[in-house]
Design a protein around this nucleic acid. Sequence first.
DNA 1: GAGTTTGAAACT
DNA 2: CAGTTTCAAACTC
Length: 695
Amino acid sequence: MDTPHKTQITPTPTSSLSKFEDSPVFKYIDSLSPIEQAKSSQTDNAFNSLAFLSPSSLFPSPQINCHRESRFSVKRHHFSADLNTRVLQSSNESNASQEASKAAGQSGLYDEHPGCLSNDGSSKGISSDLFDKQSDLAVELPGTSKYDCRSPDDNLEACDALLKKTSLEVVEQERSPFQRSRDEWKERQRSFENERDLRKIRRIKPSEEAAGCGWVAVVSDVADMLTVNTSIIHENSDGQDQRTVDSGTTSFISNIPEFSLDNANNLENAESGDHQGSCKQNELGDSVTDQTSCILSTCLPDKPVVTDSSLKKDDKGEKCSQLSRQRSIRRRCLVFEKSPGFGLHLNSLPNILKGGQNPPNKSILSSMKMGEVPSDNGTVVIESSCEAPASIGGTDADHNTPEKKRHESASCKRCNCKRSKCLKLYCDCFAAGLYCIEPCSCLDCFNKPIHEKMVLETRKQIESRNPQAFAPKVIRSTDSVLDTWGENNKTPASARHKRGCNCRKSSCLKKYCECFQAGVGCSPSCRCEGCKNSFGRKDGCDESGSDGEGLEACEKNASDKNSHDIVTHKNAEEHRDLPVPSNISRLPLAYSGKFTGSFPHSIRSSSQLCNTPEHGSSESSLCQSKFNSNLQAIPEDETPKVLKHKCLPLILKTNSPPNSKRVSPPHHECSSSTAQRSRKLILKSIPSFPSFCPP
DNA sequence: GAGTTTGAAACT
DNA sequence: CAGTTTCAAACTC
């Protein structure tokens, strides 16, 4: 379906190329284009650049636009044309680009793909010639690059400001970094408008863009997705809601990695490595302002984080933070739908709290994961875990970075199994559904991807004995459900250990007690003796009652022994109302788990077993601190009502283990139909508990 | 870091 | 199901 615009612009017949080439404008444009292309193909920021590309100044005239019209347009739109413009002001580069374009023309590429390869050819030829030069330019113009990485909206907005408001201040502010003249800005404005027209056309006729433009394939593959997002951009541009626009754009960008990840684990590793690294740096930059998003991001599988970081790399403003939050939530939701969280039991959460002294880091994001795990009867359990990246087959790139290794060695501890071969529930890694990884100190470990079959069999066997064996140990329920455990059990997050503890000597005041370790109170399910669990006693004695020994003892113990213990305790109290996306239940407070470091590879078999641990390990400590700070920074009142009042009936079908630890099924019933609907939705999006065995 | 304690998991 | 053993983390020194 051709549009008038298309008719006007499209063409690029070979015969007419000579005319274009003769045109000074063409030469100028042509000299610009190659660099971008080459650079884009060369850098990791390709996708990121797509998102931030400022309006191109490459389209000064309809003819030029015409010439650019192609699949390339996608890339060109997004790759900082401004940067090119500025960068290529160098006469040397102009010459080089011209030569390249000539070479391309001589090579016959134009003949093969008149419509597309005019660009492609030039880009290729030039890219090869200018690679080095481009790199140099990139190095020489960091500031420029940074500037250009802003979203198109930013640029558009700037242009609007210039043209509409004619504010000298704005002009100076915008151009100062680039020493650009006002005329250039106006030209940009015009160019961008032309570009927008092209975008419209492009959306209308994607098929024309499908010409096989070799290296552009990557971009082309996402072109469709980009189109959607582009539309968002466009629409928003009209609507002047720059922020929204940018959000959409970034969301798209963020999603690209996920697609890749879903399709290829290898990419996952690569991304977690490269992108995360940059991500970390970025995160550090605005860690304070973006805590919420960080924590949320952290709680999810991660790829998104990668993108976020990338985005942040170029945009450190507040806007970025806000967008990041939005994106985090959005992506998180998507991720959950695709790959639900996998229970951490008590194991995973710990890391979050330990190492709280480390500065907030994005790695947290990476290492944390939050999900809802339905129990047998549909009870929704939220789990939060701090997991290492690497999934099966992954290279665990995160662990390879010096920084991460340093963190791991310093504060990360994994399993230390000596005799169980890490194939029993004794092994925290195995129990958490994760593969052991290098940092583990286990001996004769079979809990590795190479022994996947054995792992799966073992798991299956264990599950046959106790279907709940790999289920989350800590159940988070609503306040209403809490009553079933005892009104006095005002434990963090109103969570409870599913099976309860069996402590006899620790009085449930030490981490020997799984309830205490998880930061939850004991419940009637517990068979503990002399329970003094400060998070809530089995007998329902109010902590603040006559006998305050529990709490005191607990805190004393914590303060005397491990400062982080007390932190855990406090966090358990303070974090019970962590705001989360509406489709994500609140975190349980089971973060005083056993792991002190990031988690090992998740045992994610073809059965989709699990979570998608993806992140770097080293950050667990950072993760913890950030997690803590984030949680603490979030007032309880800010918890969305939908979460606070979400009614999640806790009906535990218990297949008691041999010891038959009691699990008291709460008799709570949801009186709210709304709540029930909510629950259904949640369950709908959450697969059954992960299993080593395919469904 | 070695040894002890503890309670969950596994076994009988 | 109860008792015992095994196990690894938590804890102590």
